[in-house]
Structure formats: C-alpha cells, structure tokens
Design a protein around this nucleic acid. Structure first.
Lengths: 187, 187
DNA sequence: GGCTCCATGTAAGGAGTTACATGATTCA
DNA sequence: TGAATCATGTAACTCCTTACATGGAGCC
C-alpha cells in the first residue's frame, strides 16, 4: 500500500538529514512554517515504527549515548518508496488546500458587522505575522539539498503574500452594511 | 469543547441552506473546489449526529417523502456556536496550509533529473486544470449570502494562480544538472 | 424494468490526539 | 542542584476511512 503524507514526509526528512534520530524528525515537524502538521509524539513514533517494520527505515543505536538514541537511515527500498510517493501526484492536488481562514470567510455573513471587522483585523494581523516569519525564515541549515528548501520557502512566501492581498481585497465587500441580511430566496 | 473544522463547516453549510438534508450537506463537501475535504458518509453522518446530540442542529422529517429524509435547521445555540467557531481564528492560521505538491518539492532532490521534469510537468498540468475549474466555478446557486461565496472563490482563484506562477518559477532551478548530487557536509 | 440519483446509516479497522511516564545530558 | 533540552515511548479515547447494507423517486 502507498505511503501516507506523514510517512512520505518522514522518509523525505530522513533522506536529507540521515543519520538522524526520531527526535530530530519530530523537531522538523514542530518547526514547520506551514499550518497543518500537528506532530505529536503519538503520531511520529508509531509512524517511524511502521516504516521500520516495512524496512523502509533502518535504525541503529548511537555510540556513546545512554538515552536510547537511535540513528535512522533510509534503506534502498525506502528511497524507492520515497521516489514513488513523490511521483504519485494526483490531479486533485493541483487545487488549493483547505485554509481555515478561507473556510470561515464562507460563513462570515453569520457574524454581525462589528465582529466581522474584528475577524478581518485578526486574520490580517495573523497573515502579516506569517509573512514576517516567512520572509526571515532560514531553511534547515543541516539539511543537504538546500535548493529544494529554498524553492519551498519561496512557495510559502508567495502564498502568504497572496493571502494578505486577498484579505485586503475582500474587506470592502465584507463590511458593506446592506449585505448583512439578504431577503429569503423564493422557494 | 470547541467545534472541529468539520463540525464548524457543517453548521455553516446548514446556516446558508436550511432547511436542507444531510445528503445536501455531503454534496457540498463532494463538490468542494479545494483539496482536503474527503467527506465520506462515515464522517459526515456521525458529525451531524454529534451536532444534533449537542442541540446545535435540529432535524424534522420531510413532509411527503418516504425516504427517511430529515430536514436540518440550525438552532439558536447552533448559530452562536458557529459565530464562536468563526471568531476563534488562531495566530497559526495566518500561515499557509500544507500543500501536497509543495511538500513533495521539499524532497525533489531524491528524484533523477528526468523524473523531476515529469513531476513538474504533471504538477503544472494539474494546477492549470485547477485554475480552469476555479475560473469557471459558479458558487452554490441555492445558498443565501452569495458574496461570501464569491469572496472565497476569489481567494481560491488567487491562490491557484500563485501556485502556477511558483511552479514555473522553480522549474529552472529544479532542472539544473549540477544540483542533483551535493557533496556530503563535513561531520 | 433498469438506471441514476436521492437518502441514511453501520461495522471493522486504522490513524491521530492528549496525557502520562521515564530517564540522560548540558549548562548556569 | 535545578532547569531546559534531548530522547523514547505507551494507553485511552476519538475520529476518519472503507466497505457494506438498504430502500424510495424519477426518468427512459
């Protein structure tokens, strides 16, 4: 069976950082600049265990460390599984992913005008902060293949800029008084 | 406890389409132009059951229909829960959501040059199709509050345009031969 | 009569979340 | 010596996925 997104990413992280511990893998998720990776221990460790049981990752105890540190490496079949996972881009992935702010804008008419303004203020502020973070972010200095990380960082930057432009564009429409209540459509 | 994203959206859909059946709610998810809502019956129906048990939705059997059709309406406390859910935008939501293509680009160095080109071709094609869909999409004609749907559709359009621009921008970098293999960093 | 759509659910299994639980290392 | 960080895991619970299961309504 194919890899899940989580498993694919773990394989990818190990491939650019090997040998590295599960702890380091988890850190990469925690420091991820994107929204959506939660990455509790309860998901990462079992996922790594699954990958090991499928022989896509191999682990060996670190020398001279008594903390049970295990250093992970990607195996030959793991590298192949990674390539297949990357190649398996479906047509549906061309669309835009779910964005919790965009989702909420769908139902913004349910808020009174004053709260709508507060909502947009908070969203713009959050997006502005994210833009600042994305602008100053420095990709994992210990990873090999830095260009891929820069390409990804560019994508994040472009998307967050667009998000901010969009939020500013819809402001006028969202705050027009007469749009608060529309007449019931005829049955 | 707060609403999940799924529960919030269900409440939002019912609020703009009430009275409507669970079937209609599910259709909205199926026809969603964004990537990430899977919306099997096994998630929608139990979620609606949860909302009913919390009295945020109320259902009554449709008149003159023997298919067990139940028409849903949002209750007063449901409307308040919806407002609270919309208002609960966290700072982390300002960032960009996980995008499966962007995720894969992170590890694109694991592919040989020829497959990398094929990967980018497919991604560009998928994004182009998504752009076409987003350009011609017409928001749910039966919903009230059309401006929110237009605002959302604009956001999707802007994001997918940006995605396409980004894919074209990284192409040159990704296909430079000499970047395929980098020397091992010193330990 | 058969096909498509409308309409609602359940059961088993898998995966993620939260909280719990433990211990070594490093630095001030 | 205490705090922060490094390091790994488990247990209970909830949720989602996939597949199964059923039947009415409308149209050709």
């Amino acid at each position: 069976m194919p890899l899940s997104e989580l498993e694919g990413v773990i394989l990818g992280i190990v491939s650019t950082r090997e040998p590295c511990s599960a702890y380091v893998v988890r850190q990469r998720f925690e420091r991820s600049p994107t929204w959506g990776w939660s990455s509790s221990k309860g998901s990462i460790y079992p996922a790594i265990a699954r990958l090991k049981s499928r022989s896509l990752l191999a682990g060996e105890p670190a020398q001279g460390d008594r903390r049970n540190t295990e250093l992970l490496r990607i195996t030959a079949s793991g590298r192949q599984a990674l390539q297949e996972w990357i190649g398996a881009v479906g047509m549906e992935m061309g669309g835009v992913p779910v964005d919790p702010i965009r989702t909420r804008v769908n139902y913004l008419a349910a808020l009174p005008l004053s709260e709508r303004r507060a909502f947009l203020d908070r969203c713009e502020h959050a997006a502005f902060e994210a833009l600042a973070r994305a602008s100053t972010a420095v990709p994992d200095p210990q990873a090999r293949n830095r260009w891929t990380l820069h390409a990804t960082a560019l994508g994040i930057l472009m998307q967050v800029e667009t998000k901010l432009r969009w939020l500013r564009a819809i402001r006028a429409v969202a705050l027009e008084e007469d749009r608060t209540i529309l007449p019931e459509t005829q049955p």
